[in-house]
Write a protein that binds this DNA or RNA. Structure first.
Length: 299
DNA sequence: GGTAGACCTGGACGC
DNA sequence: GCGTCCAGGTCTACC
């Protein structure tokens, strides 16, 4: 079946999927030829389906197998969240209009950051980006999905080992143990943090998903995220940006490099210099940093 | 409040 | 093929 979900204007499908590296992490897939984003989704009734998302006029076109009304509504809700379809960036566009380095923001509909359907998945993935190289993040995520995910249902004639799998539920990771996570998934010292979060969420003691829609002030929300083991200032800022809060900058070694080449002729800088350069952007700091038209491109 | 050092993996490099 | 070095944030202990 196929359906289309409208987005608040302006909206640009490609800008969202290119907003950061998430589309390169399982269970996302991306087909460059057709500009189609795939995602293996586990519905609340445990059915696993494959979503194929592509550009539609002012929204997202979703192709998947036949779903009942409840399943369709759940799939639509997931896609709407992943693409932030209802998000409004008009205030950011107004604030950045006079800044040449952000002049393209409105035209390209920049602002939305691709999300996973659950905050649990985004927190785990963010922890897997810390203190490692991108290739290792991809490997760890792949292994986590392969080991604990559920294979796509109804994949007739296909070896179940090769079938796409959903992102693991907190229960699936909680049922494992830190040693297995370390040895099989190769997450290293992150294992206890990942396992602990999974246990907290699976037990129902910690309603992580409630943070997606809570109206806590950003500072409070950041404090909450920082209580999660493995989430420090960088990870918290990254998660805030995903949650649509832009008051903090995810400062990692790459950010230091960008700022160093932008304003300090490649001389090493600290996070203080990064903060200073974006201070004037206030609640749009994160967006201004993230979508800045940087001189440096790694070369 | 600031900082040194440990944590772990995987890739690059030299032998 | 083996050993060594290095990059990459968070956390803890310490000043």
């Amino acid at each position: 079946m196929k359906f289309t979900l409208p987005a608040r204007k302006p909206f640009n499908f490609t800008s969202v999927i290119d907003s950061h590296g998430w589309r390169q992490l399982a269970p996302f897939t991306y087909d460059e030829g057709t500009n189609t984003l795939g995602y293996t989704l586990r519905l609340s009734n445990a059915r696993v389906i494959e979503l194929k998302m592509s550009d539609a006029k002012d929204g997202v076109s979703v192709e998947t197998e036949r779903l009942n009304k409840t399943e369709r509504s759940e799939a639509a809700e997931a896609v709407a969240w992943m693409f932030g379809l209802d998000m409004d960036f008009s205030a950011f566009y107004a604030a950045s209009r006079a800044e040449p380095k952000l002049a393209r923001a409105k035209k390209q509909s920049l602002g939305r950051v691709l999300r996973s359907p659950t905050l649990f998945e985004d927190v785990i993935k963010t922890i897997l980006t810390t203190n490692t190289l991108w290739g290792a993040t991809q490997n760890m995520t792949r292994k986590l999905v392969d080991e604990f995910g559920v294979a796509l249902g109804g994949a007739t004639g296909r070896n179940v080992d090769e079938a796409p799998k959903s992102f693991p539920t907190p229960e699936a990771i909680a049922a494992s143990d830190p040693d297995t996570l370390k040895e099989k998934i190769r997450v290293g010292y992150r294992a206890p943090a990942i396992h602990e979060l999974a246990v907290r969420v699976a037990s129902g003691k910690y309603d992580l998903e409630a943070l997606k829609t809570c109206d806590l002030p950003t500072l409070e929300l950041r404090k909450e995220l920082l209580t999660i083991n493995g989430v420090g200032p960088y990870a918290a800022a990254n998660l805030l940006l995903i949650l649509g809060r832009s008051d903090f900058i995810p400062i990692d070694s790459w950010a230091l490099k960008l700022v160093s080449h932008e304003w300090y002729r490649g001389k090493p800088v600290t996070s203080k210099e990064v903060e200073k350069r974006f201070e004037k952007w206030g609640e749009y700091k994160g967006l201004a940093f993230w979508f800045w038209d940087w001189k440096y491109n790694g070369g």
